[in-house]
Structure formats: structure tokens, C-alpha cells
Design a protein around this nucleic acid. Structure first.
Length: 684
DNA sequence: TTGTGGTGT
């Protein structure tokens, strides 16, 4: 480095391109060993085809389980090669799962173009609300991991598929983790099923060992004949990334937002052309940094344009960062984690990595979910650095010391170990996994998270004393794409003649908030007050949705009423899907009690009774949770903030300076003992 | 007395 940055930064080290097998080392029918540390035996593999400097291998006997560490192109090409190998014949389909909808859709479109076929014929995709595929015709189907998981509920052996390729396995989404566990289970009954696990992580041992059942075979002589040898083949394919020079700070950084700003300015002054990507933790950090850089940039001779990027940003603002910068101008994008995997920006040559991201932590004892800025993993740090080397060699400035980097956990924590497991456990039950504690997890969630989930499912009445789904409630709840408390609320509402209201509330609770962001607080309070009713937030949403439905220009109406148009559009979509599912579950039900909000509030209580709280003293604003006796407050944005009703139920708790209840409904305490006598008893 | 890292059915 030249002067300016040199003082603060340790000399950089060039990050090597990931270890890969050189293409020229391999010939047809060559027997070879890759990743010697992982492989205990050699695999007979045949080179199937070579294209674009990428290599694809297919094991030439038995079931193929390829754990592939691959570069760009594998997602589009491996499935095509499998089709050419004849694995999609006889009406069978090759499935390729992705953790994100947008990836499934765009990759499918690209492959259809490469194969010169119409999307939806030989190549298709399936994501929620949008399936473009033809049964019996589609040979390659790109789909979200969640869609395949849902399909397993009606077809547990995935009988229409010949190959399942689980892509981006290193991201460890909840659906992918469950899928891998279930696949390992079903290959015992489907010896013809091929599985390809594609992961970008350097540490592929976890996936390899997970599918390596050769040891189990020795241990279990009863199954010796029926279980084929399944030591997975490991395939490593070179990714086409450029080297990225990595710099560390020589001492810990006090304020990573300020340091990110000063480093940006220094890069702009000293370094050659190329845009800058800065990883920060949240909206506040991003907006503060944008402001600071914009002020600094005014004093500089060469133009530097600062742009924010986070998921909550309106779509039009997100498009701004995708545009190439004008000549002579340098662009700096201040982003959250969204730029790590979900959004790929063109033109980035410099990356500044704060070393932090916001992560969700759930405390099963207090039932509190908190979002806190925490150090990232080494894998995430690599991923962030790699964003600088997509088009040409780049540089990455880490706002932490080399020692701090060494202290980071190597891999990111799987999502399944962090969150509330209610839906996950229920889904496994519905898939016939009776003993979830003994499920073959790729990484088991903490036992206390599982126990807590099982207790709550029992309390809700969806699971019986033998840990089996109840009938019909347990099965119905598992069929609905909702968290179990919302699902029970909806089913109760449908039973008691207020299905319409139940559908709206359940749909609204699937979005983070229906309110617009970035407005003045006073304006927001006034807008909310127009829809507010004494029963609370959830019932007030009914008024918002009614208003939205009955105007011509919804976009304008949303703007005028401080409502998020995109959120309500999604609510409408989810609501109609739920309505269809409800009909399939129990036939059409009569809407008997139009507008009886007491009945609706009672249905809300039937679902959310485990989250009940009581006002501590008349005239005060402190609540205590009935379960856990925790001090709680109504969130100031709630329509009940000033009303302080004596008894409430809530959707969730947010931890800020205090513990706040979110989405609050006022209830009659008699409902608690009536609806959940096993959970609440009257005192004295 | 005022929030939202990122996904998904």
C-alpha cells in the first residue's frame, strides 16, 4: 500500500484461489483421489464431459452422491449433463434446489435459453405462487428448497424425481438442512435416486461424512445386504474467481462505521478505478455512513457517489446500485448482509468488511428473539472478500485484526440452531419423523430449543402425549404455511364463523410490518390511529386491509395512509393461498359472524394464549408474562400503547432497551382458562 | 415511550 492507508493496515496477503483439481490432470475413466484428507478410499469416476474450463464428474457405478465444491456454471451445467447421461428419461425429473426464489427463476431461464427450449417445457421452475413446469415433460426443475420439502409431505419418497441436486448447501438454510437429513433417510428405500450436494465451502468434510454410511454398514450387520456402499465421491471444480488481496487492521477498531468511512475516502484518493462495497450491520449504520461519505465527498475533486443497500429499501432504490457508475465517478455501496449472497453487484473491486452482521438469537426460556450485531464467521468473511474478485483482481480491507479473524468461528451457524423451531418440528412430524430428537441432523439444534418447541406444540394441542400429531388439528396446522400459533388462530376462526377475519390476520402476520418505513413518527401515529380499534393491533389490521381492498388506486392510497404497498400486495397473495388451503382441509365454511370482533379476538387467543400478559398495576404500563413472569411493555407503535388493557396476548417480544410486546390484542382473561385449561388455571 | 441481518412454504 502507498501512504495514507499504510499506517492503519497490515501488509496484505494474497488470498489464494480455492484449492481445485486441475482440469488437465484428469482423463476419461481415470481413477483419482481428490481432497485426500477427506477421502479414505479411491473412487472410480468417469469424466462425463468437459466444458468451459469446468469439469463435471459422474460416478460410473451405483448411486452417486457427489459433494461438489464448485465454481460458477455448475448449477446450470451439471443438470444438463445429467439429462444427457439419460437420467431424465421415462418422464423422470432432475430437481435442483436453491435457497432463494430469484435464483431458481433466473437460473431456469438461463438454462432454457442455453438448451433453446421454452421455459416451462423441458426446463422449468417452481417457487411459491409461481410454478412454470409441465408434469411428464419437464426434465430439469429448479425449485426452492422449501417447495421440495412441501412436496415431500404428499410424496415422501419423491417418486417423480431421479436426481436431487441440493445447491448452495453451505448456506445451511433450515429447509436445506432438513432436506439433507430426509434424503439420507429415503435413499435407503430408493437405491435408484441420485443425490448431488453442491457447496461452495472449503470445509466439505461435514457433507461428506454425513452421507458416508460405510461405517454404519459395518456396525449394523442386519442391514449389511440392503445398504449399498455409499461413500460419497468428492468432486472439486475450480471457480473462476480472481485473487483478492486481504488487508487487516493492526489494532482493533473503535467505531467501524467511522473507520469504514475514512477507509472509503482513502481508497478513493489513492487506489485505482473500481467501485467499493462496504458491509455494515443494519439500516441505521448504512444510512449514517451514506450521510458521512456524501458530506466528505463534496470536498473531494473526483466524484464519489454513496448509495445504500438493504432489504427494506424500496425496489426502485435497490435498482440504483445495480446501474454501472458513470465514467469518472466512483460508486460506493453501503450494504447489509444482502450483498453477501442475495444481491451481486457489478463493478466491485474494493470491499470493506466491518466483520459484523446482525444475527437472530432466540432464548427458549424467555421466548425472546433478539437481533444483535455479532461477529461473522471466517466463511462469511471469505464470501465478502470474494465480492471484490468477481471481475478482476481486487482488494479487501477488514476492519479487524488478523487475531480477531483467527478467533472467528470457521463456518456460519446453521439457521436451524438459532431460531424458534416450532414450524420445523411440526413439519418433521408431518413427514413421519416421530422422534425428532433422534433425527439424523446434519447439525442438531440445541436440545432445549427442541424441548421448548415440543412443549409448545403439546400446549397448542397439535401434538398428543405420545408426541404424535393430533387429528385433525395437528395435521391441519402442519398443512398451512404459517407458524403454528397463527395456524391455530386461523383454524379456530374458521370453526367459529369468522374465517374471513382469520385469513386476513394470519396473512398480515407473515409480513414484518404492513406500515411504510421512513416516515415521520407523528405522521405514522396519525395514520395508525385512523384504523385503530380497542381490541388491538391484529383487529385493526382488518380495517387496513378492508381499506386497501376497496380503493381504486391502491398504490396512492397506501402512500397516503403510511401503508407499505408491497407488504399488502403480499398479504393479499398469501391470504388467497391460505383460503384455498383451508378449503382443501375442511371444505367451505360458513361465514356466520361478520364483524364480530369479540369472536375474532377469541380466535386470536386460541392461537396465541401461550403469549399472554397481565397489567401489573392499574394506571401503570408494566406487564408481566403469565408464562415466565417477565417484565413486558406494549410497544409504542401499538394501537394499545396508551390504552393499557388489563389482559393481552401478543405475537412476539422484541428486545430493545426494554422487552416490548409486538402485535398486541386485548382479551378477556376468562378465555384463557376456557380455551387452554391445561395451560392456565384460575387462582383462588 | 418507537423497530426491521437475510431467506422461505
Amino acid at each position: 500500500m502507498r501512504s495514507g492507508l499504510a499506517g492503519a493496515w497490515k501488509p496484505g496477503t494474497a488470498k489464494p484461489v480455492p484449492q481445485a483439481v486441475a482440469v488437465e490432470d484428469l482423463n476419461d475413466e481415470t481413477s483419482f483421489t481428490i481432497h485426500a484428507s477427506v477421502q479414505k478410499q479411491r473412487h472410480q469416476l468417469s469424466v462425463y464431459k468437459q466444458r468451459d474450463n469446468l469439469l463435471y464428474l459422474v460416478e460410473n457405478h451405483g448411486t452417486t452422491i457427489v459433494v461438489a465444491e464448485t465454481g460458477s456454471g455448475k448449477t446450470t451445467q451439471i443438470p444438463q449433463l445429467l439429462v444427457e447421461a439419460g437420467w431424465a428419461e421415462g418422464g423422470r425429473t432432475i430437481a435442483c434446489t436453491q435457497p432463494r426464489q430469484i435464483a431458481a427463476q433466473t437460473i431456469a431461464a438461463r438454462v432454457a435459453e442455453e438448451m433453446r427450449v421454452t421455459l416451462g417445457t423441458k426446463v422449468g421452475y417452481s417457487v411459491r405462487f409461481d410454478e412454470v413446469a409441465t408434469r411428464g415433460v419437464t426434465q430439469i426443475k429448479y425449485m426452492t428448497d422449501g417447495v421440495l420439502l412441501r412436496e415431500m409431505m404428499s410424496d415422501p419418497l419423491l417418486s417423480s424425481y431421479s436426481v436431487i441436486m441440493v445447491d448452495e448447501a453451505h448456506e445451511r438454510s433450515i429447509a436445506t438442512d432438513i432436506l439433507l437429513g430426509l434424503l439420507k433417510k429415503i435413499i435407503k428405500r430408493r437405491p435408484d435416486l441420485r443425490i448431488v450436494v453442491a457447496s461452495a465451502t472449503m470445509d466439505i468434510k461435514a457433507f461428506h461424512d454425513f452421507f458416508d454410511t460405510s461405517r454404519e454398514k459395518l456396525q449394523n450387520s442386519i442391514h449389511r445386504e440392503s445398504v449399498p456402499n455409499r461413500s460419497p465421491a468428492v468432486l472439486s471444480v475450480e471457480g473462476r474467481t480472481h485473487s483478492v488481496l486481504i488487508h487487516y487492521c493492526d489494532k482493533p477498531v473503535q467505531d467501524y462505521v467511522r473507520t469504514a468511512v475514512s477507509t472509503t475516502i482513502a481508497i478513493h484518493k489513492i487506489e485505482g478505478p473500481g467501485d467499493i462495497l462496504v458491509f455494515l450491520t443494519g439500516q441505521d449504520d448504512v444510512n449514517a455512513a451514506v450521510q458521512m461519505i456524501s458530506e466528505e465527498a463534496e470536498k473531494l475533486p473526483r466524484a464519489l457517489v454513496a448509495l445504500p443497500l438493504y432489504a427494506g429499501l424500496p425496489a426502485s432504490d435497490q435498482e440504483l446500485v445495480m446501474r454501472p457508475s458513470l465514467s469518472g465517478r466512483r460508486k460506493v455501496v453501503l450494504a447489509t448482509n444482502i450483498a453477501e449472497t442475495s444481491v451481486t453487484l457489478p463493478g466491485i473491486v474494493y470491499v470493506i468488511d466491518s466483520g459484523f452482521s446482525k444475527q437472530k438469537f432466540y432464548n427458549p426460556i424467555t421466548n425472546v428473539e433478539a437481533l444483535v450485531a455479532a461477529p461473522i464467521s471466517q466463511a462469511s468473511a471469505d464470501q465478502r472478500a470474494g465480492r471484490a474478485g468477481r471481475e478482476r483482481p481486487g482488494k479487501c480491507f477488514r476492519l479487524y485484526t488478523e487475531d480477531a479473524h483467527a478467533a472467528m468461528r470457521p463456518e456460519r451457524l446453521p439457521e436451524i440452531q438459532k431460531g424458534n423451531l416450532l414450524s420445523t418440528i411440526l413439519q418433521l412430524k408431518a413427514l413421519g419423523i416421530d422422534n425428532v430428537m433422534q433425527f439424523d441432523w446434519l447439525a442438531p439444534p440445541p436440545a432445549e430449543l427442541m424441548v421448548r418447541a415440543l412443549e409448545l406444540l403439546f400446549a397448542l394441542g397439535v401434538m398428543d402425549g405420545h408426541a404424535k400429531l393430533t387429528s385433525p388439528l395437528g395435521h391441519q396446522v402442519s398443512e398451512l404455511p404459517l407458524d403454528p400459533m397463527s395456524a391455530k388462530m386461523l383454524l379456530t376462526a374458521a370453526q367459529t364463523g369468522c374465517q374471513k377475519e382469520g385469513l386476513t390476520i394470519a396473512a398480515v402476520l407473515t409480513v414484518q410490518t404492513i406500515w411504510a418505513s421512513g416516515r415521520e413518527r407523528k405522521e405514522m401515529d396519525e395514520a395508525r390511529a385512523q384504523f385503530a380499534v380497542a381490541e388491538g393491533d391484529m383487529i385493526s389490521y382488518l380495517n387496513v386491509f378492508e381499506g386497501y381492498l376497496h380503493v381504486k388506486n391502491r398504490n396512492q392510497w397506501c402512500y397516503e395512509n403510511c401503508v407499505n404497498y408491497h407488504a399488502l400486495a403480499k398479504v393479499a397473495k398469501v391470504r388467497s393461498q391460505l383460503s384455498t388451503l383451508l378449503q382443501q382441509l375442511g371444505g367451505p365454511r360458513q361465514q356466520q359472524h361478520d364483524g364480530d370482533v369479540k369472536l375474532v379476538a377469541k380466535a386470536v387467543t386460541a392461537g396465541f394464549f401461550p403469549n399472554a400478559a397481565r397489567l401489573e398495576a392499574e394506571g401503570g404500563n408494566t406487564y408481566r408474562s403469565l408464562r415466565g413472569n417477565q417484565e413486558l411493555f406494549i410497544h409504542p407503535s401499538s394501537v394499545l400503547f396508551r390504552a393499557s388493557p388489563k389482559w393481552v396476548v401478543f405475537q412476539s417480544i422484541i428486545f430493545l432497551e426494554r422487552h416490548y410486546m409486538w402485535n398486541v390484542t386485548a382479551i378477556n382473561p376468562a378465555w384463557l382458562t376456557e380455551l387452554a385449561p391445561h395451560f392456565y388455571q384460575l387462582k383462588g
